[in-house]
Design a protein around this nucleic acid. Structure first.
Lengths: 248, 248
DNA sequence: GAGATTTGGTCTGAACTCAGACCTATACTG
DNA sequence: CAGTATAGGTCTGAGTTCAGACCAAATCTC
């Protein structure tokens, strides 16, 4: 029998088919959406039946996930018409805690995310600018982008700034209309958020970051793909340099 | 109760948590690895216990998947020491069939992949060249890249050329050492393979494609990230232009 | 206030998945 | 040739997930 003549490929290509337990995956997705500010404090989640439908799980499974979120204090639930599940989690301040000891596997994952981000987010900015240039963006989408940028610039407290930052990056990705790209950026932002909570970042230099955000948005709205990509690359590089030093 | 004030984000961020049935996901992954030539005709798959371990499923579930692959004629199995599961699927010739009617959802997915590819594969080439420039690539990895390129250039029959092409792209992605990037490129190549089997591609212009491959590999081995990315972008753009026209 | 509607809460039986022990076939080793 | 190692083949009981029906509470409409 012949062995596979490409020894490096199977190791790279075969991956775990899923993180066991559908309800854990639901908790993960919903908690991520809440932490990243897709559903901010006080907002209502979609009805159970709709969420179950969207996540492709049974309502029973989704309810298990909801119970976990409730127990973890992220949401509260009221029944009856007009009821529903409301976000109660206050955004946490980045770096408010001591540096947790992280395993080698987690550290490797963090470093992977920083490289992956260097590719995906600038790529997203590029595609978004391309769509703008070609007239494929709706007025409403441009407004959303403006609004997201204003929220970042207007957030005074670090915790709100962090969520607004995530939302801006996700909004840019959403402008591309590419489900795969949105998924990639969501994954990146999730891990980034995890890092920022676990690492004591001394000085985030929010003003610098906001100038870069503005530059990216300007380039996107001007329909300049290459400039948008370049601007986002610089933004990612600056963040990465800061974090890489602290992760080791 | 407040509604989520970012109407575009939940729709984009919440996704199905998985394609139900672990065994279907196993079939999908293994069939993809076989079709893309990660396990070429005549090669032996890893033992069941090892595969189950790697895919994070129980052996019972993996065996269901194996049974499906066997029934579909992709593999054959012999028991006993020195036995195992051997690939019997002959690579299929692209575009050997009439154009199948594809649903709107599939067509949208295909177009998404072409955009996503435009981001991920050039990004992978960029990162690989960066690692080469910084001396992070082993001698063995450079050899693998050379070998993969030679196989593409040396493949005479279209079916073998298609597999060698996939392997080259996966090899470049694997050079980056980024699990996320390898996963992204695997996904891209899987859908690309699906497209090429379903669409009657009239003239692939293999010589042109091989020149572009060579340019990418040269740039990677020279440690020139920007040139590698540019070369891969051109390669992706040419493929995409061809396919987009045929998909509509 | 009566009734309709929307929302979360509960239950059931079938199907899927799991971990792990155990059986069987084949080939290598001494 | 006997023993051992390595492979696939089989079984079991417990946990998870499913689809869908039905119940209960809160609100809206008339």
């Amino acid at each position: 029998m012949t062995e596979a003549p490409h020894p490096q490929l199977p190791d790279a290509v075969l991956r775990p088919v899923r993180g066991h337990h559908a309800f854990e995956a639901c908790v993960e997705q919903l908690a991520t959406a809440i932490r990243l500010g897709v559903y901010p404090l006080g907002s209502t989640l979609p009805a159970e039946r709709e969420l179950a439908d969207r996540l492709h799980v049974s309502r029973a499974t989704l309810r298990e996930a909801m119970a976990a979120l409730r127990q973890a204090g992220l949401v509260e639930t009221r029944r009856g018409r007009g009821g529903g599940t409301v976000v109660t989690l206050k955004p946490r301040t980045p770096s408010a805690r001591k540096a947790a000891r992280v395993s080698a596997a987690v550290r490797a994952d963090w470093l992977d995310v920083l490289e992956y981000r260097r590719i995906t987010e600038p790529g997203g900015a590029y595609l978004a600018a391309l769509r703008q240039r070609d007239g494929d963006l709706e007025e409403e989408q441009r407004d959303q982008l403006h609004a997201a940028l204003d929220e970042v610039a207007g957030a005074d407290r670090p915790a709100e700034h962090r969520q607004a930052d995530s939302r801006l990056h996700l909004t840019i990705a959403a402008l591309t209309g590419s489900p795969r790209l949105v998924a990639a950026v969501t994954d990146v932002q999730r891990v980034l958020h995890e890092m920022l909570l676990a690492i004591p970042v001394l000085d985030t230099n929010i003003a610098h970051s906001d100038r870069q955000h503005a530059a990216v948005v300007r380039a996107v709205l001007a329909g300049k793909p290459d400039r948008a990509r370049k601007a986002m690359e610089e933004h990612c590089d600056d963040t990465a340099a800061l974090l890489r030093g602290l992760v080791g």
